[in-house]
């Protein structure tokens, strides 16, 4: 750490670092959401299914986020756990228009919650009920019912509807996350 960084830290000028893991089924819009959260000039137009993971960074007013955007395809989901340990928060993206696979998403959530690296820790979990613009999209309330979110007792959680293409709902979610970190 350079002298300036240290000074900035003391004066509270330096933003706090925040390590977030972004998971959810394939095609739910994880990469699209992260992309939209980045500053305009570093956004990309070309979003393809992720293979493995990528690391992205973005900022809110008071935090620097480092996000591990994981691949949601079935055969890569068992690799998520390698990144549980270092995660300070989890973003779980749901495709609210994909009613059929909501059960699959719930299964993955249950596995996450039972994992030894997560179960005992007070990790905040932010749910995006993404693709709210789609006609057949479920509301956040419906989503949380289907996902059984009420059963999560030992962790703070929040769900909000989002549209990754327009950016609608994203700041709402990020603000909640920022608050959680500040509280902790």
């Amino acid at each position: 750490m350079g002298l300036f960084d240290k000074l900035a830290g003391w004066l509270g000028l330096k933003k706090k670092e925040m390590n977030v893991l972004c998971i959810g089924l394939d095609n739910s819009g994880k990469t699209s959401i992260i992309n939209k959260l980045k500053p305009d000039k570093s956004q990309t137009q070309d979003i393809v299914p992720t293979v493995g993971f990528t690391v992205e960074k973005f900022m809110s007013q008071s935090l620097n986020f480092t996000v591990f955007d994981m691949s949601g395809q079935g055969r890569y989901r068992n690799l998520w756990e390698h990144y549980y340990k270092t995660a300070q928060a989890v973003i779980f993206v749901l495709d609210s228009s994909d009613r059929l696979r909501m059960v699959v998403a719930k299964e993955e959530l249950d596995i996450l919650l039972q994992h030894s690296e997560i179960a005992a820790r007070r990790v905040p979990i932010l749910f995006f009920a993404n693709k709210m613009d789609c006609k057949e999209a479920l509301s956040p309330v419906q989503c949380s019912q289907k996902m059984g979110l009420d059963a999560i007792l030992n962790k703070p959680w929040h769900i909000c509807a989002s549209n990754a293409l327009s950016g609608e709902g994203l700041t709402d979610g990020v603000d909640w996350l920022t608050d959680q970190i500040r509280l902790s």
């Binding site: 992720t50 293979v51 493995g52 890569y76």
Partner: peptide, 12 residues
Amino acid sequence: EDVIIVTSSLTK
């Protein structure tokens, strides 16, 4: 094992 995990990162 599972070294393909870095595929997207390298592509980027």
